[in-house]
Design a protein around this nucleic acid. Structure first.
Lengths: 205, 205, 205, 205
DNA sequence: ACGTAATCGAGACGGTACGTCAGGTCTTTGT
DNA sequence: ACAAAGACCTGACGTACCGTCTCGATTACGT
């Protein structure tokens, strides 16, 4: 028996949803956030640019952050499928990955929406949870898997907490990106990997 | 010779400023951000709570972020005066400091405004610059000074880039705080210090 | 030769029309206008109450006023069949009729929809025309016929313009109903008839 | 002791009201209702035409009907000051007045807003009351006063209920105007007066 | 001691965007 | 083929704040 005091929230029928409108909305959101930033992004502007009624946005998304989230993170990609390269050389592999991350963070097209979403998590915990679960954790877990392989290959001290090890790698990059204190470069990525890994080498027994 | 097309921006006379109003505004801003978060913080609400006209806020601050910034970071503290402890034991000293940082980040009173300001830097570069310059860099420079002392004492490899070394310490903490992936604990701070420092010990030549 | 630029207006096939739906719609409209008034009457609400798709209403009626009109004025009654009583005593007959009119206007069930339709004629001239032609004029013509009979019977001055005579009778009632200035009573109807008829008695030549 | 559950409705300070805005709003409302009718009259359109924020309308008027009401009925006219002419000849005086009324009702500038306001009273009883009290009743009372003078002068039967007598005069005009059945002319006004007054002449005792 | 000039509380103003609602059209899915 | 259902685009609603402006009423100097 359901609660009679709160009538059903009228969930719309997803099977009748217009894919044309959905795509137009997501594209418009990405365009607009690139042009003017998240603060000036409004639902009305998205609707106008997409040639869509506002209600069509409110029907399917709870906030402009949710729209942007879906625009940035296309659903349907399997989180478990994310895998770091494994050439057998943990240091080289991590440098490859962190250099790619640096390139992504320096990409102007990705920078604006990513910063916007990250910032919005401060006001919107629900968004934060979604972002962590759908995007961040899958990537971090890939790091953990790669580090575990290195551990098993004897390249990393077996006593190390891999979760913290990973944070030693990505934390510094994230910190520089977030604070804009100094530029993010490949050389920086390399140095972080070298320094972090030096502390993880197996101790001579 | 000044531009005649733009009349003087009417800088108000700071000497006549009402300290009562200033304090009331800052206090009201802090209260409100604690109660409802930054998103629901409005200039009108601050003015109403402080018993102040809106213009009194607009006269002295350019944005609600600037108000909050001043509320959180009382001016008049000398950035150069920030100093990390130096007992001679770099590991112990860093653990002391990072534990204190963990405590601060876990303090509910500081959490909301700090997150709000951090998030707002994504939309307000001017605020970001101020935060970096007045708050962040002074602290980071204190780390650099303490690490340099350790280097000179032979506890840290002289080849290490201290700026990056510092980021290996604070980056992980900042990352956890920002992403809320796992709890921030003293044990975590200790492990980060241990792991980071292991990579910085002088190499046996 | 038809205009090729305007395609046929797609007149639906009336023979396949669902009588069930038609009745449900008309009943729902009457119910709703009684419950909440014309202003809050919406096509959506009628459709929902009638268990009918909105399109089924739009297919057959041009506006909510048209629905209400058909609900109030069942088609198929012969306008010429309306007849005032004729006992030979014009004063008594008019009092009978105006008292009945007063009763109708005081009937709460009829009041709301009638007022709504009357008011809507200000915005919807088409509706006004329909109302006049189908409802109002047939009744007024009945008055004219009855007054003419009285004229021929020597009870009314032959020089009188009967159209205006009739308006002297119904105008005051309509005015009071519309303006709600004073209550509509049988006594009022009687006085109006007495007063109006006094001016119409054949002059002593 | 006042009700603590309902905070004061924040009545705005009338002394600071902008007369410029007020006039612009009333003018815009009159223009728009003349152009497109009351149904298509929107607060947004009024605000746009008047070059005014919507809130400035909502601050001072409860509905678009109230705006139109004030636009049509400039406040500050003393209801008691309305007086019908008194040349001593009641028939001639009434014809003068009703002819003027006919002219007003045929004036296109007054027609649209007057019809709109009249129609709106069906949905908005508060408006109806205001209209009756501020506009209608003062005029009707003037009729009553003039008829009473005629009564005292021996031109009207002392037994007549003057309130009903007045309705016999204005009711027919109102009815024709409202139903648009036949044109409103001076000749019509004259005939109504003649017919109605014939029934009011003093009976030969 | 007194003008006078600036700040102050207050809040009306022209605006922008909000999130909701209803209108009327179009499309999909039975029956 | 028509009816139900309901998603869609449109546009107005009434509200919340924005940042600017104007209004007396305090202040706090500089004569």
């Amino acid at each position: 028996m359901t609660d009679p005091s709160t009538p059903p929230p009228k969930v719309p029928d997803a099977s009748r949803r217009s894919e044309r409108s959905r795509r137009a909305i997501l594209d418009a959101a990405l365009e607009l956030v690139g042009e003017s930033g998240f603060a000036k992004l409004t639902i009305e502007a998205i609707a106008a640019r997409a040639g869509v009624g506002k209600q069509t946005i409110y029907r399917w998304w709870p906030s402009k952050a949710a729209v942007l989230f879906e625009a940035c993170v296309p659903e349907g990609i399997d989180p478990a499928s994310i895998e770091l390269p494994d050439t057998g050389d943990i240091v080289a592999d991590l440098k490859t990955v962190l250099r790619a991350t640096v390139d992504d963070l320096n990409d102007a097209r990705l920078d604006a929406p990513t910063r916007a979403l990250t910032a919005e998590t401060a006001n919107d915990p629900e968004l934060g949870r979604a972002l962590t679960e759908k995007v961040l954790e899958p990537q971090l877990q890939a790091y953990v898997r790669r580090l575990r392989a290195a551990q098993e290959a004897g390249q990393v001290d077996p006593d190390i907490d891999l979760r913290i090890a990973l944070e030693l790698l990505v934390g510094p990059l994230f910190h520089r990106w977030q604070t804009r204190t100094l530029p993010l470069t490949h050389a920086y990525a390399d140095t972080v990997v070298d320094l972090a890994l030096r502390g993880m080498t197996p101790r001579p027994s």
